[in-house]
Every structure is written in C-alpha cells, then in structure tokens.
C-alpha cells in the first residue's frame, strides 16, 4: 500500500494538554496530539484508556477540564481568549465542521438513508436542497449503497448502517472526520466492507482521527499510530515502526495481547 506523504504541514487538528476526569477517575491526563491535513491518525489502546473520551472532547460532546482544541487554527468550545465558553449556537456551528462516525451508527431512524445524509447539510448548514440531494446520491454510490437510498435504517445490516454513517459524515464536507470505534459493534464478517470504505477515504486525502481496535487498518492505512494507556499517550509513530519495533514496554505488551 502506497503511503501518501504529508504533502503540507498544514495542521487541521491541534489538541493541547487535554485533561478530563469523571468524578475521581482521571480519564485524560494531559493529552496533546496534532493531525495534519490529509493524514490519518489511529488511536489504539485497551478499553478504558481514554481513547473515546479524547475523540468526544474534540467536538466538545464531553467538556474537557483543562486544555484546548484547535480546528484549522480556530479554538473549539471556548471563545477567542479562552476564558468564556461558547454559546450552544456557536458550538453547534463549530461542530458542523467536524464529521463524526459512531460505534453504534446512531442513524436517525425516522429518516430514510438519503434523508439521513441530507438532513444536517440542509437544516444545519442551510445549503441548497437540490445540490445536497445530488451530492448525497453520489456519496451513497461511493459507499456502494445507491440501491438503498429510500430504505429506512432498520432495514439495513450493521455494515450497511455504518457505511451510511460514514456517508452521512462526509455529506457535511467536514474539515476533519472522527471515527469512534466504527467496527466494534459489527459482526466479524461485516468489518471488511466498512474498513474498505475507510481506506479509500484515507487514500483520497481525508483528514481522519480514528479510534479503533482494527489493527490491520492501522497498520496498512494510518500515517501515524498513537497508543494510549491510563489517559496518556504512551507511544506514537509511523505504523511500520510501531508494529515491528515498538519502543516502549507498554506497547510491546499491548501488541502481544491484541495482535495475533
């Protein structure tokens, strides 16, 4: 698999020193991470290591206790200056710049497949309906679900639901795509179709932050792999180096456990 170079050094996502506790449980302990334009970063780690919380802090679904998140240089969650929280409408506008794919798909059950794609672009981004519908149809074609456009989500298999979930995120034309364990809720035989879609996205230059247990995807597709444990990043690097010659003892243990 040909690795694309980091064409530019333009930073899309810049996470600085995020800290978050639930009660007395410290889930994120000063995590910093950057994702450059067009790159795919995979976050690995055992469950409870804080990966999902990190992702949810990026679009402020969880509010971090400390630290900052910048999207293309603009602060998320806090107004300029950093001491006043954004209003819900300001926050909503920033969230619309980030696409998110969920572990349990979270499709809107009352809308058909194509309506799921078109819903937020029309009603949040206020884009032209005809244009959005045409783009949505093209996106469904791209994930191989053009035939299902008028079905309701309850009629789809898990793999199909997740491909709709990905297309729904893409329909927002987001600057950044977040994937929260997108294959964890799928039957093993359905993982492949979702991973294939994610690979083509990564290769076509989308900027992606992916929390996953899918080691094959991380090894073959990621530009950078980050291992989290106990709320900290314990190791990061190119996948080839990480999987062949991990630098830390913690990474070696993790790989022994999770890579057969």
């Amino acid at each position: 698999m040909a690795k694309k170079p980091a064409e530019t050094s333009e930073t899309v996502l810049d996470i600085r020193g995020l800290t978050k506790s639930f009660g007395s449980n410290l889930v994120l302990d000063g995590v910093s991470l950057t994702v450059a334009k067009g790159r795919t970063v995979c976050v690995l780690g055992p469950s409870g290591s804080g990966k999902s919380t990190l992702l949810r802090c990026v679009n402020w679904l969880e509010k971090p206790d400390q630290g900052a998140v910048y999207l293309s240089g603009r602060r998320i969650g806090m107004r300029e200056g950093g001491s006043i929280p954004m209003s819900s409408s300001e926050l909503a506008r920033e969230r619309a710049r980030i696409g998110m794919v969920f572990q349990h798909f979270n499709l809107w059950p009352h809308l058909t497949v194509i309506q799921n794609l078109a819903e937020a672009p029309i009603h949040v981004q206020k884009r032209n309906r005809d244009e959005v519908m045409a783009e949505a149809a093209a996106l469904l074609d791209r994930v191989g679900l053009a035939a299902k456009k008028d079905d309701f989500p309850s009629r789809l298999s898990g793999g199909q639901k997740q491909r709709v979930g990905i297309a729904r995120a893409l329909a927002m034309k987001p600057e950044l795509l977040l994937f929260d364990e997108p294959t964890s809720a799928l039957d093993p035989e359905l993982v492949g179709e979702v991973v294939a879609v994610m690979k083509t996205l990564a290769e076509s230059g989308s900027t992606m932050l992916v929390v996953t247990h899918e080691m094959g995807f991380a090894r073959e597709t990621a530009d950078e792999v980050v291992l989290m444990d106990g709320g900290r990043i314990v190791e990061s690097g190119e996948p080839s180096a990480f999987f062949k010659k991990p630098k830390t003892e913690r990474a070696r243990q993790f790989l022994q456990r999770y890579v057969s």
Binding site: N59, L61, S88, S89, L91, A92, R93, R95, A96, I98, M100, F102, H104, N106, L107, W108, P109, H110, L111, E119, A120, H123, V124, Q125, R168, M172
Partner: peptide, 28 residues
Amino acid sequence: RETFEAATAFGYHGPRLYTRIVFPQVFL
C-alpha cells in the same frame, strides 16, 4: 439518547434539535 447525541455532533441545537430529530422519533 445516541441519535440525539449524533445530532448534537452534527451541529444541531435548540429548537431545531427538537423539531427535526427528537419529536419526530417521539411521535413515531
């Protein structure tokens, strides 16, 4: 609650979150 959270992540808030996402599901 997940589909409501998805809507939040997609930039819904306030009245539109209720009219487009919450109440259609409630009434169904």
